[in-house]
Every structure is written in structure tokens, then in C-alpha cells.
């Protein structure tokens, strides 16, 4: 063997840089973390705080000019009857949508994890991914066609002699209306349709984490499948449902496109924000309105973290 050099000699600027980074792990970390932190920590969080700050300004009633002074007048305005009605309407819709999403998503997720062959599973997976990632607007629009008074649902109801059922639904006070596309029922259907994929995948992730041995153990101990499901699988998939509901709940709280395209004209939080910052020019009130989703989701996230829902995200 040759008398080996102790170190391998290398030169050049790149090598010098590499050496400097190797000897200063903190510098390397700063270089890695700096750009994303500046972008999200300063640009994004900074914007959120700027928004928060603006909610403490208020609009002068006479001149219509925003007064840049600290006051709680905007919040006083936020808690008036008409504005609270908007909030309650939105939260009720978000809750209803979340439960419906769980009801639709759970069987699909359960089938994917516990029954589907691997090919079938991949297919279903893709079938959930495609609507999740794509064509939000197009998919909302599709329902405008379907729910229109002269549209697909009406026609099918006639063919199946179910017009009485449709009319009955639409005759229900509050949630009914002249047609599906101008009623809360319609808004609800579209919300569920748009957000259900967000519920399926976290439940799949949670179900996959249920050890098979646990299920077998439960069966060994003489549990009937139904009991195994209720006592073992269901509790263990709660984090998945919570993780999914972070999306379904939050996104419903802030959406304004869906109720704008399908629904009666009664506003949701998102529409109120849009109206206040746009035509009304009341940025402080718009900012105060956005605090609702932020605070609700903040509380929700803290509770969800305690429940371990982040592992299923």
C-alpha cells in the first residue's frame, strides 16, 4: 500500500464554502431555514398581524374614512344582531357540512383500508386525489348545472315520480327555497361535495395506523366484528376525523364562492368579508370578521393537537 496522505487535498471556492458550512452547522441551518421563515414568518404572518391590527381601527360613520386609532368600536359593531346572525349561520353550516363529510367519507376510507385489493385501493386513492387537488371552481360550477331549476335533478325527480319529495324538501322553511340552486340545501350539498375528499384521506391515514394485531386480538377475545369496530377501530380513527374536520370546518367558515354561486343571498362570513372590504370599504370590519375563523380554528387546532390529530394530517 502507498504511504497514504492523511487528508485528501482539495481546493477551490466550492470546497471552501462546503467546509465553512460543515464547520458551522448553525450557519447551514440559518441558510436553510432563513428563506422559508422570512417568507412565511414575516410576509405571511406579518400580513395576518397587520390584518389583526386593522380590526382595531374603525370607520367614521359620517365621512366613511378609516380612523387609524385603537378602538373597539369595530368589534362592538361585529357583535350586533345582524352580524352575529351571519356568524351563527356560517358556523351552523360548517358543523353540518363536517358531520355530513364524516358520514360520507368514513365508509369509503374504511373500505379502502380494510377491504379493497391493492389495485382497487390505488384506484380509489387516485379517485379521491383528483378532486382534492383540482378544479375547485369547475366543480362548484358543475353543481350549478345540476341543481338548476330546469336542470338534471329536477328531470330525474320527474322520471322517478319523486317531484313531490323535491317540492317537499324545498317547501321546508329556512333551508328550502324556490329551487335547489337557490336554497341552503343546495349550498350544503356543494360544500359537502367540495370538501369530502379532505375528510377521506386523514381517515384513511388514521385507519392504516390501527395495528392489525389489535383487531385480531379483539376478535380472539371473542368480540363480534361490530363490537371490535365500535370499541377498537372507531375510537382509534377519531384523530383522523378530527384532522379532516380541521379542513372541512375551516374551509367552510371562510368560503364565499360556493354560497355566491349556489344559494340564497343571505351572507356567510366569507361573503361579509368580501362585501365589507370591497363595496363597503370598511376594511376594519372585514378584518374583524376574519377573526372569527381564525379564533375558532385556533381553539380547534389546540384541542386537535391534544387529541393527536396532527399525526393523521
Amino acid at each position: 500500500m502507498q504511504t497514504a496522505a492523511i487528508t485528501r487535498e482539495s481546493h477551490g471556492v466550492a470546497h471552501a464554502i462546503a467546509n465553512a458550512l460543515y464547520r458551522n452547522p448553525r450557519l447551514l441551518l440559518a441558510l436553510l431555514l432563513g428563506p422559508p421563515l422570512i417568507w412565511l414568518g414575516i410576509v405571511y404572518l406579518g400580513s395576518l398581524f397587520a390584518l389583526l391590527a386593522q380590526s382595531f381601527f374603525h370607520l367614521d360613520d359620517f365621512s366613511g374614512v378609516v380612523i387609524h386609532e385603537f378602538s373597539l368600536k369595530t368589534y362592538a359593531h361585529l357583535f350586533t344582531g345582524a352580524n352575529m346572525a351571519i356568524v351563527l349561520r356560517t358556523v351552523a353550516m360548517a358543523a353540518a357540512v363536517t358531520f355530513a363529510c364524516i358520514a360520507i367519507a368514513y365508509p369509503i376510507a374504511y373500505y379502502m383500508v380494510r377491504h379493497a385489493s391493492s389495485k382497487m385501493k390505488a384506484l380509489l386513492f387516485l379517485g379521491v386525489m383528483l378532486p382534492l387537488w383540482s378544479s375547485y371552481l369547475v366543480r362548484v360550477y358543475a353543481w350549478k348545472l345540476i341543481l338548476a331549476k330546469e336542470g338534471v335533478i329536477t328531470w330525474f325527480a320527474e322520471r322517478l315520480h319523486l317531484t313531490w319529495l323535491l317540492d317537499g324538501l324545498l317547501a321546508i322553511p329556512t333551508i328550502g327555497g324556490p329551487s335547489l340552486s337557490t336554497s341552503y340545501i343546495g349550498t350544503f350539498i356543494v360544500f359537502v361535495y367540495i370538501w369530502v375528499p379532505y375528510m377521506i384521506l386523514p381517515i384513511v391515514a388514521a385507519l392504516e395506523r390501527v395495528p392489525k394485531s389489535l383487531i385480531e386480538a379483539s376478535a380472539d377475545l371473542g368480540s363480534r366484528p361490530r363490537d371490535t369496530f365500535r370499541n377498537v377501530i372507531l375510537p382509534l380513527s377519531v384523530p383522523g376525523m378530527v384532522a379532516g374536520s380541521i379542513f372541512t370546518f375551516s374551509l367552510t367558515l371562510g368560503d364565499y364562492i360556493i354560497p355566491n354561486i349556489v344559494g340564497n343571498s343571505r351572507p356567510f362570513i366569507g361573503m361579509a368579508v368580501l362585501a365589507q372590504q370591497g363595496t363597503a370599504g370598511n376594511i376594519p370590519l372585514a378584518a374583524a370578521f376574519t377573526m372569527w375563523p381564525i379564533v375558532i380554528m385556533g381553539v380547534y387546532l389546540i384541542v386537535a393537537k391534544r387529541k393527536g390529530a396532527f399525526e393523521a394530517l
Binding site: A4, A5, I6, T7, R8, S10, N19, Y22, R23
Partner: peptide, 16 residues
């Protein structure tokens, strides 16, 4: 010491 030379601070890619 590797072959009598102190390798303190020498990164792995420069060690023989």
C-alpha cells in the same frame, strides 16, 4: 491522531 497527525476539525470527507 491518524498517522501521527491531529485530525481535530478535519471533516469526514478530508480524512483518509
Amino acid at each position: 491522531l491518524v498517522h501521527g497527525k491531529n485530525v481535530e476539525g478535519v471533516p469526514p470527507y478530508e480524512r483518509d
